Simulated assay, not measured.
Amino acid sequence: MKKISIIGQIAEIEREIAMRERVYPERVRTGKMRQAEAEMLMERALAIRATLMFCREHEADIRAFMASRAEVRRG
Rank of each mutant, 00 (worst) to 15 (best):
G8T: 09
R29A: 12
K2S: 02
A70R: 11
L46F: 06
R15T: 09
A36G: 12
G75Y: 07
P25D: 05
A60N: 08
T30L: 05
M1W: 09
I17A: 01
E21H: 13
I17E: 02
E43N: 14
I48W: 00
R49I: 04
E59V: 13
F54Q: 06
A36V: 15
A11S: 06
K32Y: 10
Q35N: 07
E14H: 07
D61G: 10
Q35L: 09
R63E: 14
E26R: 13
R49E: 07
I6E: 03
M53E: 13
E71C: 01
Y24H: 03
A60E: 13
R29K: 14
V23Q: 12
S5F: 05
R56V: 02
Q35W: 05
R74V: 11
A45G: 04
A70S: 11
I48Y: 00
A64I: 01
L46A: 05
S5G: 01
A11M: 06
A64D: 05
S5V: 04
V23Y: 09
I6C: 05
K32W: 10
D61N: 07
E26S: 11
R49L: 14
A60T: 14
K3T: 08
Q35Y: 07
F65V: 05
Y24S: 02
E26K: 10
E12R: 09
G31K: 09
H58R: 14
F65Q: 02
A64G: 00
I7N: 08
E37A: 10
M1C: 08
Y24M: 02
E43I: 09
M66Q: 13
F54A: 04
E59T: 14
H58C: 03
Y24G: 00
T30H: 04
R20C: 03
P25K: 06
R49D: 03
R44N: 13
R29C: 02
A36F: 11
H58T: 12
I10A: 00
I10Y: 00
R27V: 01
A45F: 03
A11W: 01
R20T: 04
I10G: 00
E57T: 11
K32E: 15
E37L: 12
L41F: 14
K3V: 09
K3W: 07
I4T: 07
E71H: 05
R49S: 03
R44G: 08
R74G: 12
F54S: 04
I17V: 06
K2L: 05
R56Y: 10
R44K: 14
R56I: 03
R56N: 06
R34G: 11
R44Q: 15
E21W: 06
A47K: 06
I62K: 01
L41I: 13
T51M: 10
R20E: 04
S68M: 05
M53V: 15
A36W: 10
I7V: 12
Y24N: 04
Q35D: 07
A36P: 03
I7C: 00
E39T: 15
E39V: 15
I10D: 00
I62A: 01
E16W: 06
H58N: 15
V23G: 05
I4Q: 00
A36H: 14
E59S: 11
R44A: 12
R69Q: 15
L52S: 00
G31Y: 12
G75R: 14
A60D: 08
A45I: 05
M66R: 11
L52V: 06
S5A: 04
E16P: 00
